[in-house]
Design a protein around this nucleic acid. Structure first.
Length: 458
RNA sequence: GGUGCGGUGGCGGAGAGGCUACGCACCGGCCUGCAAAGCCGAGUACACCGGUUCGAAUCCGGUCCGCACCUCCA
């Protein structure tokens, strides 16, 4: 089965063929750790995670690297504002990010390099760029000379002239071209800094990804991921510096073969921004909904489409997931026959939809059809369908895999027993009273032939 | 101003020249002390105007509208 992926550089969907047939190498621009993760960060992490998991179905050996940016002016600002030292701040939010992504069933990357551990690699690359006359020293900064790179603008589809027209950028007077970007900048004594051939300073924004991807994956590697907003300037600059460090006017393919960008998340129809106060934080949403529900919501639209985040989308996902689980619970697991997943036509159809540029809406549709088929087939078919569903849920990362810790367990049991006795005596007033009591502690009950079932709502 | 992506039934959202996408909601029925859930069934669609075609939501041209990027951003 062929694997197709949309490449932003060529703007076409193409078959994915790894450089090294035995090994797939992927890099994703990770978060800058200075605050809680928002739902946009989560979309990128979930989509990339799904890409990696799906690739693993076809390729045995997949190496996934996603960095942590722990040097950045936003971090310095946050530290100054809060009074928390930088290293404490970054390690705190680094840890929180990993925990929150884990709650969304995002597997940790194979490597999660930190920018602060790769200063030497960055300095080396900058020196290379200076030697090749692709960068210059001005006003104590090292600046990349955009005009030195022939393919600059290819990823974002903008010529240098176009980038200037109507631009709102403030032009620093020490830059030869307004589009030139900073590779290294001087640090004040109260700012973090490292010794370099150009004095004590720190790296500019883009160089860390170039240095770490090269170090961890070697170049060229296969797929580079990130949010669409990073295409310009971040990824454009990455290509320019990584390729120029190889040789002047080196083609973009020598850095990375496929550019994979996920669409933006809007919040109630508007861009998330601090001024509008509509930034949706993952930890806030997790208080109300499970990780699986959030993940399903994030996968309900195709990854390249914009996704409007609303309460309704979460409620819909919660109901959909609940129906799926209820249908699965009806199946007696000991009657399920083992079948090979590689020959399971139901799973293969599902898989094909993901192999087609991660068409998750289609794959979810197939999953739903399988759920509907689950009850009406003969045992052998049923086993196959059941296995396919379980495997599909696992791949999508929406299977139930965490025990919810139940508080008031004994109280709940006691109330349900009492209600059962009341119902037997046809004392329905008391029975309904108890149901109300239980709902107050977020316990939902359901009377079935096998007795009263209950579940704790988040 | 430049660049890119979209406009599909009440909502979310695939698809893509002829074939029910799917989910959620709603409506009818079964079941139930009630409720919930579940099951069965029905309905509603491709922004607008032209064109190509035997046939267009799908192709072509134009119009309108929305969103994003061009500044930190996932």
């Amino acid at each position: 089965m062929k694997f197709f992926i949309f490449d932003s550089l060529s703007r076409t969907k193409k078959e994915f063929v790894p450089i090294d047939s035995n090994k797939v190498r992927i890099y994703a621009c990770g978060p800058t750790v200075y605050d809680y993760a928002h739902i946009g960060n989560a979309r990128m992490a979930v989509v990339t995670d799904l890409l990696v998991k799906t690739l693993k179905k076809k390729f045995k050996n997949v190496t996934f690297v996603s960095n942590i940016t722990d040097i950045d002016d936003k971090i310095i600002d946050a530290s100054k504002k809060s009074g928390v030292p930088i290293s404490k701040l970054t390690s705190k939010f680094h840890e929180i990010y990993n925990k929150e992504m884990n709650a969304l069933n995002v597997s940790p990357p194979d490597f999660q390099p930190k920018a602060s551990d790769h200063i030497n690699e960055m300095i080396e690359m900058i020196e290379e760029l200076v030697n090749k006359d692709c960068a210059y020293f001005s006003n104590n900064h090292i600046i990349f000379r955009v005009e030195s790179y022939k393919y600059y603008g290819q990823l974002s589809g903008r010529s240098l002239d176009e980038q200037l027209a109507g631009s709102r950028i403030e032009i620093a007077d020490y830059k030869k071209n307004p589009r030139d970007f900073i590779l290294w900048k001087p640090s004040e004594s109260n700012e973090p800094g490292w010794d370099s051939p150009w004095g004590r300073g720190r790296p500019g924004w883009h160089i860390e990804c170039s240095a770490m991807s090269k170090k961890c994956l070697n170049i060229p590697f296969d797929i580079h991921c990130g949010g669409v907003d990073l295409t310009f300037p971040h990824h454009e600059n990455e290509i320019a510096q990584s390729c120029s460090a190889i040789k002047v006017d080196c083609e973009p393919q020598n850095f990375c073969r496929y550019w994979f960008h996920n669409g933006f998340v809007t919040s109630d129809g508007e861009k998330m921004s601090k001024s509008l106060g509509n930034i949706k934080l993952v930890n806030e949403i997790l208080k109300k909904y499970s990780g699986e529900v959030i993940r399903l919501s994030l996968l309900s639209a195709h990854y390249r489409q914009p996704l409007n985040w609303t309460e309704a989308i979460l409620q819909q996902s919660e109901k959909t997931l609940s129906r799926i689980f209820k249908n699965l619970e009806k199946i007696k697991k000991d009657e399920i026959e083992d079948s090979q997943i590689k020959k399971n036509e139901f799973f293969l159809e599902f898989q094909e939809s993901l192999f087609d540029d991660l068409n998750t809406p289609k794959s979810l549709s197939i999953l739903n059809v399988l759920i509907n088929k689950l009850k009406e087939s003969n045992k052998k078919q049923q086993s196959k369908i059941y296995t396919a569903i379980i495997e599909a849920m696992k791949l999508l990362g929406i299977g139930k895999n965490k025990e919810i810790i139940i508080e008031n367990f004994d109280l709940i049991k006691k109330l349900i027993d009492e209600r059962d006795r009341a119902r037997q005596k046809k004392d329905f007033d008391r029975a309904d009273e108890i149901r109300l009591e239980l709902s107050k502690i977020n316990v939902e009950i359901e009377d079935t032939k096998e007795g009263t079932k209950w579940k704790k709502l988040k």
